[in-house]
Design a protein around this nucleic acid. Structure first.
Length: 996
RNA sequence: GCUCAAGUGGCGGAAUUGGUAGACGCGCUGGAUUCAAAAUCCAGUUCUUCGGAGUGCGGGUUCGAUUCCCGCCUUGAGUACCA
């Protein structure tokens, strides 16, 4: 009987599905364990071998935990709202729901064929109304909450309204918009409803406000900070500009400190925690107010700045405002007006990207106005400059050129004085930005103080003046929550007199309306502006036709949709109770499953999904909907699997006289030959002649008759046409549907310089390790691998490649190793005539092999070192084969060890051994140390730390006896060559080292 | 610039309470089997001037360092005028 993996794998996948082997129970006596993979977005391209890496690792762990007696929740679903499906819809007119459905089918088929132990009865899709009903519900909860600083948690907005109506807002300590007006209870009660709603928006955890946003014209939508990479959109790489728009925002800044502190209690990698810490960006300093010196035409104004170095306040020689700062237009003098306006115009034109890529050019303008120094009362010129960001702090800085390099450069450029306030520090070349060895000078009452004391002193003096206090600032900004797109969750919001109103929870879900096109309207409204049935009837409690809008009972609905991270910020709770229609998950389910014990996914979600999820969970906890503070107890980032790209080398002729005149020839040379051409002029001449001869009858002949230089242009080719020896399948390449036509006329020159006709020469490709992607033509499809080697081989090979967290290149050739191992394993159990396993007593040797394997595999799984257990299995099978072991007592437990890694073959052999039940919940074998006890040890004998030979000595031999034995050994005498050793180190059970 | 991670054969990688560096696999070489091929099996495979040398480089601690300490270099990832 041979190992027919295709048949076996299909058989067991069907068995698991039919018997619901992996269905998790919500009421179990067993301890719970929740293993989760990051939500996949079902893209049209399907899976490549890089995608399942994390899924395989989590599946191994989930299966292992079942063997260890846990009730395991291991679900899967789809983050199915998103940009790619919508972009495709725009191009083809196809409804995104249809493409999404098709893509999900492909994903499901691909996932199934790898043999994952998912509980599919709990599948969720973010684009499913029964799911986004609860996303909308959470949004409403956020709207109906505010953040109380006093209790440090979110509270219902009704409690805030009660306080307002009883005592106004003077005593309220809330996280809210800056500059909220102070009012009394009687003021509040006298306000109109609109006014009250306007005020409440400044307190709500999700609020509508005009904010400066990142607008991406190409995608027609705003983007959150984490959706922008290097100044361009993460998806598609389009330009992003700054724009003021009215948008929904999430007051995540309220949770900055808790998000930061919570990192200390979770088991995540340091690098991931570090990125979140940087993203939150806590800095401790002071806020300082500088009055603007008023001239007769202007009202008195104040500039508030944030600084981390209040101790350097006497070093301030100018102030700088961001060009967008509100105050600029109010303080600019008539003389400077023209210059300032011109400067603002020129900076507004620069995109975010330009501004970032060009940090060296110093630009700015003087406003003509002056501020007054809090202590010296000296006038300080106020400048504007785009090195000051409107979005950070207050958008204004007190510039201390002696202590900050950017201020220093700005001052040098505009000839502003640079007063030195550091004792014994030379600042003639650069600023002294270090916080070490600071002694303040030329600073009145701060003279002679070190940083810490000076900071303390200056803050207390500022407080006395009422011009400042200690302050903590966070870089974390409130997150923009509106997207001007179609394929996302609709907001459960309608507008009365321009004020947003929540639709009552009982009417949820508010379903996405139909539109005829997925583009913005002609007037620039989002795609939902095209819907005809998109108005809210408050009487009927349903969505009705727009024509019914009367602004009395029927009102317009919100036209924006929610961003991709809305649905993914809470999905892990839905898996606990996926079918519930009454609540997002029942109390019992939430109480049983609590949180995710193990979360595996990519590090690209560090500052997006993983931060937003933590924020929503903290909020849900504050409001009593869940009991956990953090969603993901342990998190592992799997490393990327890189692709091995293949290159052919096209010959390019470049005119000797005019360097820009390049012609791509039809000649494509092999790897080795391409190097030869560049290094050996003789070979190059020969090729030139071949090219001239070839084009002799063509128009290009004229070009090639003149002298030209040969260059080589590497070109990606599909890795599908390259075999394990790097040889290119030329005929296959020419027949390729997509790229074949590019090579139909190509002339291939092989390794030995011959034009390839038949098998007279070989064409070899070059290769390079790059990210696996469609555009680099280096994707390897798991379907092909499963077909040729089987899912078990794929699973084991993905693990065998290297440590889970590290990036590593894929090389299909290497899979023969693990595939050969599985065949060898099969042969250990199955002979030509069937099962070879019997009830014979195992040998001590076999028991030792088994137990050291149990020990190692268990340790490896616990430490997520899956690559080393694959080696361990190989060693075990090699040893047992050599021992000719066919004892059931050995081979049966071995299958349980293997089953998390290669579940199909394990199930098959398990049933061959006579079991009727699945191997999935069989108890993990128990390691027994007694089988590993050794009576002797092969001691390595070292001389000055270098091992020279080994000696077998009893384990229980004393140190002295070992030394005597070693010294008496003939090889020792030969090594020493008559010398007397200074010292002999004997470490029993380890090593002997002879020194001297 | 800052933060984090990582540098070991031709390749993926193994070994860290400091104790025989290169497990396991790929590839390669030779052999067996075969008419031949595939498959399978066996042997070898860090370099070497055969003394030794050797885990990115230079120091240090130690009887002994891939492992610990100090200083550099390189690569990758993230972040970036954050006051």
């Amino acid at each position: 009987m041979t190992y027919n993996f295709n048949e076996i794998e299909k058989k067991w996948q069907d068995f698991w599905a039919k018997n619901q082997t992996f269905k998790a129970k919500n009421d179990s006596e067993k301890p719970k364990y929740y293993v989760l993979d990051m939500f996949p977005y079902p893209s049209g391209a399907g899976l490549h071998v890089g995608h399942p890496l994390g899924y395989i690792a989590s599946d191994i762990y989930a299966r292992y935990k079942r063997h260890k007696g846990y009730n395991v929740l291991h679900p899967q679903g789809y983050d199915s709202f998103g940009l790619p499906a919508e972009q495709y819809a725009i191009q083809t007119g196809q409804h995104p729901a249809i493409t999404t459905e098709e893509n999900i089918k492909t994903y499901r088929r691909q996932l199934d064929q790898i043999g994952f132990s998912f509980d599919w009865s709990r599948e969720v899709r973010t684009s499913d109304p029964s799911y986004y009903k609860w996303t909308q519900w959470i949004f409403i909860q956020l709207f109906e909450s505010w953040y109380c600083k006093h209790t440090d948690k979110a509270l219902p907005i009704s409690e805030l309204i009660e306080v307002f109506s009883k005592e106004g807002n003077q005593a309220v300590e809330a996280v809210c918009d800056d500059h909220v007006e102070i009012f009394s209870a009687s003021d509040w009660n006298a306000f109109s409803s609109e006014k009250q709603q306007e005020i409440l928006l400044k307190y709500r955890l999700t609020y509508l406000a005009e904010t400066e946003v990142n607008w991406c014209p190409a995608l027609g939508t705003v983007l959150a900070n984490d959706e922008i990479v290097n100044g361009v959109s993460e998806r598609g790489g389009h330009a992003v500009v700054r724009k003021k728009m009215t948008q929904w925002s999430m007051r995540i800044s309220a949770y900055a400190e808790r998000l930061l502190q919570g990192l200390n209690d979770i088991d995540w990698t340091d690098s991931l925690k570090e990125s979140q810490r940087n993203w939150i960006g806590k800095s401790i300093g002071a806020s300082v107010t500088f009055p603007v010196i008023a001239n007769e035409a202007q009202q008195s104004q104040r500039i508030e700045v944030f600084t981390t170095r209040p101790d350097t306040i006497f070093g301030v020689s100018f102030m700088t405002l961001a060009p967008e700062h509100d105050l600029v237009s109010k303080i600019v003098t008539d003389d400077q007006k023209e210059e300032v306006e011109a400067y603002i115009k020129s900076t507004a034109k620069r995109s975010e990207r330009d501004r970032m890529s060009d940090v060296k050019t110093i630009t700015g303008a003087f406003t003509g106005a002056y501020a007054e120094h809090p202590f010296s009362k000296e006038p300080i010129p106020i400048w504007i400059g785009d090195y000051v960001l409107a979005g950070y702090g207050t958008g204004a800085v007190m510039s201390v050129p002696s202590g900050d390099q950017r201020d220093y450069d700005f001052a040098k450029h505009f000839n502003i004085p640079i007063p030195n306030i550091f004792e014994g520090i030379d600042i003639s070349e650069e600023a002294y930005a270090s916080k070490d060895n600071v002694v303040i000078a030329n600073s009145d009452f701060l003279n002679g103080l070190a940083l810490k004391e000076a900071t303390k002193k200056v803050i207390s003096e500022l407080e006395k003046l009422g011009q400042g206090q200690g302050k903590i600032n966070y870089r974390l900004r409130d997150a923009v929550f509106s997207r001007q797109r179609y394929w996302g969750e609709p907001f459960p919001v309608y507008y009365v007199n321009g004020m947003p109103q929540m639709i009552d929870k009982k009417h949820l879900p508010i379903r996405l309306p139909e539109v005829e096109k997925y583009l913005p309207t002609e007037t620039g409204e989002p795609p939902l502006g095209r819907a005809d049935v998109w108005a809210w009837d408050t009487k009927k409690g349903e969505v009705v036709k727009n024509e019914n809008i009367d602004n009395v009972n029927v009102f317009p609905l919100e036209l924006n949709t929610m961003p991709g991270w809305a649905g993914s910020s809470w999905y892990f709770f839905r898996y606990m109770d996926a079918q519930n229609d009454e609540v997002f998950a029942s109390e019992e389910a939430l109480a049983y499953w609590k949180d995710v014990d193990l979360y595996i996914g990519g590090s690209e979600h560090a500052t997006g999904h993983l931060l937003y999820s933590r924020f929503w969970v903290k909020f849900l906890k504050d409001r009593g909907f869940v009991s956990v503070e953090e969603p993901f107890k342990k998190l592992i980032n799997q490393g990327m699997i890189l692709g091995t790209s293949a290159f052919v080398y096209r010959v390019v002729a470049n005119s000797e006289s005019e360097e820009t005149e390049r012609i791509y020839t039809d000649f494509i040379v092999s790897r080795k030959y391409s190097e030869l051409i560049l290094s050996d002029s003789g070979v190059a001449e020969k090729l030139k002649q071949q090219i001239r001869d070839y084009y002799i009858d063509e128009k290009k002949d004229e070009y090639f008759s003149k002298p030209f230089i040969i260059e080589i242009s590497p070109l990606h080719v599909k890795v599908d046409y390259v075999n394990t020896s790097d040889e290119l399948n030329i005929e296959g390449l020419r027949a390729d549907k997509e790229f074949g036509k590019d090579f139909r006329d190509a002339i291939f020159i092989g390794e030995n310089g011959h034009i390839i006709e038949g098998d007279n020469d070989l064409y070899k490709v070059g290769h390079e390790v790059e990210k696996m992607s469609k555009s680099k033509l280096n994707v390897v499809n798991p379907d092909t691998i499963c077909e040729q080697y089987g899912a078990d081989s794929l699973r084991m090979y993905e693990m065998f490649l290297g440590p889970l967290e590290q990036a590593k290149p894929w090389n299909t050739a290497g899979i023969s190793g693990v595939h050969g191992f599985l065949k060898k394993l099969w042969k250990l159990y199955m002979g030509d005539s069937g099962l070879k396993v019997s009830n014979v007593e195992p040998t001590a040797e076999s028991l030792k092999t088994l137990h050291k394997t149990i020990k190692k595999v268990e340790e490896d799984i616990e430490s997520f070192s899956f690559n080393t257990s694959v080696s361990t299995f190989m060693i075990a099978v090699n040893e047992l084969t050599a021992q000719k072991c066919n004892s059931k007592e050995i081979l049966e437990p071995l299958l349980i060890l293997l089953s998390p890694y290669a579940p199909h073959i394990a199930e098959e052999l398990w049933s061959q051994l006579g079991h009727k039940e699945s191997i999935a919940t069989t108890a993990f074998p128990k390691f027994e140390a007694k089988y590993l006890v050794e009576s002797s040890k092969m001691y390595p004998i070292s001389f000055n730390g270098k091992a020279k030979f080994t000696m077998e000595l009893p384990m229980d031999m004393s140190k002295d006896d070992i030394e005597k034995e070693v010294m008496a050994h003939e090889k020792t005498i030969a090594q020493l060559d008559g010398r007397t050793p200074k010292k002999v180190i004997v470490v029993p059970g380890k090593i002997v080292n002879v020194v001297g």
